[in-house]
Design a protein around this nucleic acid. Sequence first.
RNA 1: GCCACCGUAGCUCAGUGGUAGAGCACUCCCUUGGUAAGGGAGAGGUCAUGGGUUCAAGUCCCAUUGGUGGCUCCA
Length: 735
Amino acid sequence: MPTITLPDGSKKSFDKPVSGKDIAASIGAGLAKAALGVKIDGELRDLATVIDRDASISIVTERDRQKVLDKDGLYLIRHSAAHVMAEAIQDVIGKEVQIAYGPPTDTGFFYDMYVPEGKKISSDHFAAINKRIAEIIAENRPITRYEVATNDGLSKLKAEGNKYKVDNAERALGMPSSVYKGGKPAFADASVARPSASPSLTFYATGNPGQNWEDLCRGPHVPSTGRIGAACVLSLASAYWHGDENSDRLIRVYGTAFPTQAELDEYLKQKEEAAKRDHRVIGKHLRLFHIDEDVGQGLILWTPRGSIVRKELQNFISAELKKQGYTEVFTPHIGRLELYKTSGHFPYYKDSQFAPIVERQALEELCKSGCSCAEMMSRVDGVSARLAAGINERTKATTIAADRIMADDKLVDGFMLKPMNCPHHAKIFGSSPHSYRDMPVRLAEFGTVYRWEQSGELNGLTRVRGFTQDDAHLFCTEDQVPAEIQGCLSLVKTIFNVLGMKDYRVRVGLRDKDSNKYTGSAESWDKAEAACIAAAQSLGVTFSQEPGEAAFYGPKIDFVVKDVIGREWQLGTVQVDYQMGNRFDLSYIGPDNKAHRPVVIHRAPFGSMERFCGVLIEHFAGAFPTWLSPEQVRILPISDKTLDYGREALAALQAVGVRATLDESNERVQAKIKVAADEKIPYMLIVGPRDAENKAVSVRARGVEKDLGAMPLAKFVADIQAEIASKSAVLGVKP
RNA sequence: GCCACCGUAGCUCAGUGGUAGAGCACUCCCUUGGUAAGGGAGAGGUCAUGGGUUCAAGUCCCAUUGGUGGCUCCA
């Protein structure tokens, strides 16, 4: 008879098999009422699941004791809401809509469905669908799980004519698909039963089997529709069955659900808020950057205002780097193909690089000699025997396969737009001898790189084809690795703090110990992984360890920052690299007077200036702190009678480097204020005859309801200089 | 790259086969006004590009290009 261990370690014995609901009831009526599901030995299940053996269980509820929404609770609610939405859609659009796959996601759920010819689902239907969802939730139907023997289940599904569900079932049972050709294996986290010894298929009825809507589903679900709380449909997209583009194209309907309507409303409000902060919209409105189709997709033109933001940010990062002993370098935007054959970027990452640049005369000669395109491509890809031998020897592996080696007179040389800065930096390091006493060598460059992102992936400033990394390469001895990683993290901490991004975490990517794809000794890996973990620990940031997420050449740390409205953004990385020293034959002389390979740390903690600026635009909703603002002060004369004094104030501010302008327009001051407020200028100085007489300015700070009143011009100048220098709101500006 | 939707004035958008529109911005005029838009006039468009259907195309069809949302990918 089962003995149940509860999360607090206490044990309860039962004299017969018990359901999750029974256990909850035995603990307390309140818990029984709040229970949504049960976790049995770590596995999330229906509350009604009967337990007949000893197990550790926890009762899953909507939220924990701190009233924070529970992840498992949300999973159950959203998984169930996906069923309810699918039913609502079939009620509104028609039973001909075939449901395929509907899992919960981080922020809600979706359901992929096939909408037959002649039927259509569009956002016009959302109101009706949402109404139906609300009705089903209000009906509070029980959600009933039942099992059917495999063959009966399959016949049932086939009779219903939904080939996706038949396919799901057949995949789940490990059978070859009878209705579907091609495609990849089923989703790892599918809503279907996993391949198992189970002789049956499970169905969930939203209500009573045979009477109400039902779905082949692995579960688990909440006990009844009323427990979903509130759900709604959000958007439409397209997706392929099993993510395979050769397969059927389905409509993916997104929705989300929360335990209460208030939480759903809050989420929708936050989404609206996020849309208003869209950096592409704000970037246009505040004239920060421009993307021009004649220049090319994903290539950012920084306008004067945006350039100020970017440059201020860069200056700030540079100053911190200088404090940490970095030295700055400059390198060109292109390099010879052979450089990238040495580093391994070409042709390994060929698909995400711009095509090589082959010199015109060489191209003409190739054409004249009748060289085909295919032949030319292979001749561009080839590697000289000399280079291959060197790399293979130094990496002690067949890093360059024999079939890539090509006679020198066949090779076609060319240049490449650089996809990374490291080869150039490696060459700088290699250009002079180094002693262990000089190490580490920290080469920093705001280096612009070019990558061929797929067109569908491009997005404003956050996914582009040409971007400037806040890049640096730290060439160090193995013993120096921990301190250098630590330094990278503390830099990030400093900068995030100043920007008011207090909430961030790091992901430590570790190797998968069962895999042999990694280079470098196990001992080095252990040390470097320990160093990454220790650095994250010592800085007191939240971090997760993710085995299998390391690069093949070393462990890495990714930075994820949460912005002011709680969205997470993946920024840059720190990566330890044992491979580059070998590839480029880098060395330093150790205390033993012998040459040693340096370990290289690649680090671009903010990823790219483009992306980081995009994140900052959204973080601040365009209302930058004064030190970052393209325009820090605007002087608004009451009328052109005070224009001269306005010019005097302007000169005083510009003389000390404050970015100020004077509104000389023939408008009333109310209109000038409106315009300046729309442009999120931190400070407005209203100047009229009274102010002119007293050498004063009437100050209005962004985000402050009431004006700050008049103060001597000299005091304002001094205060704003202090505000800019300290990067803090001395004068009280608000976001 | 794939799928869906979209592209009209600098910006936001209206215009469902019959003479291209509004608001804001811009230029000029009036107004000289003390804290979130005073008034008037003017200028501004090969309706993304190229083909097609039609007596007639911003509107319908095809292609191209760019954007958006997804999918896939991401050193």
